[in-house]
Simulated scan of single mutants.
Amino acid sequence: MTRLGELERAVMDVLWDRSGPATVREVVDALDGRDLAYTTVMTVLDRLAGKGMVERERHGRAWSYLPAAGRDAYIAQLMLDALDLAGERDAALVRFARSVTGDEADVLRAALEAGGTTTGGGTPSGKSRDKA
């Protein structure tokens, strides 16, 4: 999975916080205070589309952009990718489990008891990480 740069993350945050698609102009407006050129945001969205992070659809002369997956799916994939870097996955998992709060542990426990079903769309690519 591709890690996002600061501006890419800011653009994705705009898209994740919306309930529908956004044009480049709407993203630029939502990033007010950052003093970004329209073409800069357009380039970032184009790159995000190339990375599979956003889907786009043509509406007249403009493109509308939607996240390809939810924020929770992206974060979960980052966590899995980080776990892949561990020499000992079990040790990394135990260390992580010991670092979460009681409420977070309850959420993890409930998810495990539910049989590993996910909410929010699974991995950003939509592919299962289960190994056959």
Rank of each mutant, 00 (worst) to 15 (best):
M79S: 09
D46N: 12
A97F: 12
A30I: 01
L85P: 00
E104I: 08
G126N: 07
L85H: 12
E88Y: 07
A76K: 02
T43E: 08
R18Y: 08
T2F: 03
A37Q: 11
D84N: 10
G121D: 03
L4Q: 04
F96D: 00
A10E: 06
E104C: 10
E26F: 05
G102D: 10
A10L: 08
E57S: 14
R9T: 07
V14I: 10
R89E: 10
A22T: 01
S64I: 13
T123D: 04
M53T: 06
R56A: 09
R56N: 11
D29N: 14
D13N: 13
Y65I: 03
D13T: 09
R58C: 12
P124N: 01
Y74C: 05
L83K: 11
D17G: 15
D84G: 14
L15D: 03
P67N: 08
V27R: 02
L80P: 00
L108H: 12
V11D: 03
G50R: 07
L78V: 13
L108C: 12
G52T: 09
R61M: 15
G87H: 11
T2L: 01
Y74I: 08
A10W: 01
A76Y: 01
L93F: 10
G122A: 07
L108F: 15
V14A: 07
G87W: 07
M12V: 01
L93T: 04
T39D: 06
K51H: 09
M12N: 04
Y38C: 07
S128F: 05
V11K: 01
M79A: 14
E8C: 03
T43L: 09
R61T: 15
L78N: 04
G102L: 14
T23E: 03
R98I: 00
G102V: 13
E26G: 07
D84C: 10
R3F: 09
G20P: 01
E57I: 12
A105D: 11
T43H: 10
K127T: 06
R89T: 12
H59K: 15
G120F: 05
T40A: 03
M42F: 10
Y38H: 11
G60W: 14
V107E: 11
S64M: 15
D130C: 06
G87P: 02
G120V: 07
K51A: 06
T2S: 05
D72E: 13
A132G: 10
V28G: 02
R56E: 06
V24Y: 01
E55N: 14
G33W: 05
T101V: 09
A68D: 03
D103M: 14
A30G: 04
T119S: 12
P21R: 08
K51N: 03
S19E: 12
G20F: 08
D35V: 11
G126L: 06
V24R: 05
I75G: 00
G102Y: 04
L15T: 03
R56G: 07
G116S: 10
D106L: 14
E88T: 12
L4D: 03
R61F: 15
A62F: 12
R25Y: 06
K127V: 08
R58N: 08
